[in-house]
Computed example of a mutant assay.
Amino acid sequence: MEAKKFIDEKSDVLATYLDFFLMRKLSYSQLNHFLWETLREWDDLAIFDESTDSCKEQVFWFLLFELKNWSSQQIFANRILRQKLHTGALFLQGQGVKPYNCIGIRPITECLD
């Protein structure tokens, strides 16, 4: 699977999971499980190109990093962070604009040759 197809498929799921999480209909542990599985699947693709392909991909990696970086309590205590996450989810769903100051980069896959 190529990077673009992976991002397109996972973006829809990430946006849906994030929406449910922000509405408190999905636990952080369920969201976290999805995030780790997504990173594992990305690693399995063995894509060594570090450049992001699109704004959509930048938002995807930005959201994934932010959700891994902050705890559930921190997310719900920070209105600005919640709004930025929500805006990112909308963008992935084809609605709204790219969140301000949203810089997402691909995780680096280690080459063990």
Rank of each mutant, 00 (worst) to 15 (best):
W36F: 04
F62A: 01
K25I: 10
P99I: 00
W42P: 12
C111M: 15
Q83C: 04
Q73C: 02
L45F: 03
E41K: 08
R79D: 03
L64N: 06
A46N: 12
L39G: 00
K56Y: 05
F62K: 04
Q74T: 14
H33T: 06
C55F: 00
I80N: 13
L63S: 06
W70M: 04
Q73V: 07
Q74P: 04
L63F: 01
F48G: 11
D12V: 00
Q58W: 09
C102K: 03
D53C: 07
D19K: 15
L63Y: 05
L64E: 05
G96C: 09
Y28L: 08
D49K: 15
I103M: 11
I80T: 08
E66F: 02
L26I: 06
V97R: 12
D113N: 12
S27Q: 06
Y100F: 13
E9A: 03
I47M: 15
G104I: 04
V97H: 15
L81Q: 15
I75T: 04
R40W: 07
W61V: 10
L45K: 08
L31C: 01
Q93W: 06
Q74F: 08
D44G: 07
I80Q: 13
Y17Q: 06
I47A: 11
S54V: 08
G88K: 04
D53Y: 08
R24E: 11
A15P: 02
F76H: 08
T109K: 08
E9N: 00
L90Y: 14
D53T: 11
K98C: 14
T109D: 02
F6S: 07
D8R: 10
Q74Y: 05
F62E: 01
F62P: 09
D43T: 14
